[in-house]
Design a protein around this nucleic acid. Structure first.
Lengths: 139, 139
DNA sequence: TCTTACATTGGACATTATCCAAGTCAAGAA
DNA sequence: TTCTTGACTTGGATAATGTCCAATGTAAGA
């Protein structure tokens, strides 16, 4: 994640303790926290950090393309730092756990020309749903 | 939509004026209203209908599989009555307009076995994003 | 060290959705 | 037809999530 901090500095980001803590919380391979979860974890390291700052910082990271917003359930958005490797999401319909997955081939290619209605396509996001092994074995 | 009303009656639904109006509002081919939009349109026909009833009815229609919940933007959920023809959605990144589209082939098939992590898959939902013709010509 | 533009804060406010107790009514029974 | 009853509806309170703003604080260059 120090790569991230370096990139942000290069783009003229002012590096505050709050932003550093948010970036640290998002460090990891398969992290998909809500804004409130990020805030709760950030508070453990920097007790005075406010929710507004967490929202601001997450929004900035999304604008900069360093973090992806994911909404798999119509409830709180989740923030995914795995932005530099395109991937899709596999979600358990029962417990909600999320895995990053990589389909073979580009989902965009599945949409035929006559189904594009003149749109200039930029991306396709896929959400796979099913039951995860631990929910399956729990009956 | 009278087909829908018949199916609901067959399932023991009590057919009230409110439910009938919600079903009528959702009649159509490419309808993607939010709950509030459904409520606004329902009020035109039945001024005393409450928001709670609209939410209740929409929730029931979703449970019954007659309507699909769509959240393309992390804001209010939208309700799509085109539930009996599987389809995906094409969304304009600028104005938010939504089209129903049909990919060629099953998006589920794109996820290789080793990327399924033991999940029992049930569906894949795809959101295509791009710029619609009218936004494109508007600069 | 000083300056200042940018960042943070807490609380008010906005949006979307759910819950609940009281009142109402659709539809089957008589 | 009228009666009965359990299901449905209502409005308002409440919850969950997110945004805004004026006052205050501070990182980083001069």
């Amino acid at each position: 994640m120090s790569d991230l901090l370096q990139r942000l500095r290069d783009r003229g980001w002012r590096l505050t303790a709050q932003r550093r803590v948010v970036a640290e919380v998002l460090d990891g391979e398969h992290v998909h926290y809500t804004a409130d979860e990020v805030h709760a974890r950030a508070v453990e390291r920097l007790p005075e950090i406010s929710r507004a700052t967490v929202y601001n910082t997450l929004g900035e990271l999304v604008s900069l393309g360093e973090v992806i917003e994911v909404s798999t359930d119509g409830r709180a958005k989740r923030y995914d730092p795995n932005a530099h490797h395109t991937h899709q999401h596999l979600v358990c319909s029962r417990c909600g756990v999320i895995r990053d997955v990589r389909p073979s081939g580009d989902p965009l290619a599945l949409l035929p020309e006559e189904e594009r209605f003149g749109f200039t396509l930029s991306e396709a996001t896929v959400t796979y749903r099913g039951i995860c092994p631990s929910c399956a074995s729990a009956g």
